[in-house]
Amino acid sequence: MTTVALPQTRSEPAPRRRRLNAQDGAAYLFLAPWLLGFFVLTLGPTVASLYLSFTNFDLLQAPRWAGLDNYWHMFAEDKRFRNALSVTFWYVLLAVPLELLFALAIALVLDKGLRGLTFYRALFYIPSLLGGSVAIAVLWRQIFGYDGLVNEGLSVFGIDGPSWISNPQYSLYTLVLLRVWQFGSPMVIFLAGLRQIPQELYEAAAIDGAGPIAKFFRITLPLLAPVIFFNLVLQTINSFKAFTPAFIVSGGSGGPIDSTLFYTLYLYQEAFAYFRMGYASALAWVLLSIIAIFTAASFLSSKYWVYYGDEGR
């Protein structure tokens, strides 16, 4: 009996496997648009751009192999590259922590069970919604211009303010401010994170006599660490890629005297103003490496300061 029964049970997977194979065709039909895009617009260009980064290429003539020249020029000779790196790093270093600090502070206040949470959250989110647009960059140009809103305000107190956007000492800070102003979107993420912290922990801590400060440092902060980490990585990558505000506020130049020459803006100029496409490709690969190194470093360091709730359980 068993010998008769065996083939039957064995034969059962066979039609299923055949069905799986039949699904291959359908599946690849569903995937076709993405596959085409992946090869033609992502993988192909990625390989091509790596190749171009080792060439001189001006769009008119075929790329000419240049070996490591582009990278050599970049790291050894190009002062604008070094400047763009430093401007971008300063921007990220100032804007991201400040942005996250504001986001966390307001999220903590909002999480206290106040009436009107949805309303406040929407209000605080609006700058994030609009902030990346050209329109807001236009507004920033006016506000921090010589006869702009800020200086009109200062003149009430008899202070004659400089033109903030055309003074290399201050221009970058106006962009930092624009970024920090958009703290609403990390705030929304913080709020969601705070929601995950069980209320019982606070109640238990209160019974043990913990004050608000102890509760914050012993419960909120450690349990929120994964969310802080997520926000940090996300906002840092986004800040590295910032382009529109610097372009609009500086009129496309990255000026005054390159003080707002964001990395992406420099890349844009090299590629589409000077048509040094090979060099711009090399710049893109360096940007990719910076983002990759930063992300990897955050992940590697995260195990020392990010506590994921399920580890001990």
């Binding site: 091509a48 751009s49 171009l52 990719l288």
Partner: peptide
Amino acid sequence: MLPYHVTLIP
């Protein structure tokens, strides 16, 4: 993970 700058020029 890929920033669009990498594929931009090709």
